[in-house]
Amino acid sequence: MTIVVGYVPTPEGEAALTQAIAEARKTDTTLLVINSSKGDALVDNRYAQDSEIQSIEDRLATQGIKHVIKQPVRGHDAAAEVLDAAEEHNAELIVIGLRRRTPVGKLIMGSVSQRILLEADCPVLAVKAG
């Protein structure tokens, strides 16, 4: 069994990661960190750079948590990547970060979190940046 966390280098993403670490420690399960990009633009600030990944790696290692970090760039959106990973690894829990969005913003952009909440087969823990 695994816990899947959707990570982005933002306060919401950090909050989700912190929460996921706590959950993984509680149940001693493997943590699967997903940080994806569609890879269709030169710049994607939601895609973590090597140094950031390294620091997460260090953080998880020092806390003694079994973990896998994946950074798929396959042209799929973040929701699809997280759902895919959850299904593939038979996840017991998905952890995501929530961002405040205006109703209009949500209408235009759609919502990654909403799709995960609706389509996931396992419990989803949604965290807000505090």
Binding site: G39, V43, D44, N45, Y47, Q49
Partner: peptide
């Protein structure tokens, strides 16, 4: 095309 996205410095 570059495969890995880059970060623009804010």
């Amino acid at each position: 095309l570059r495969r890995t996205p880059l970060h623009a410095i804010p």
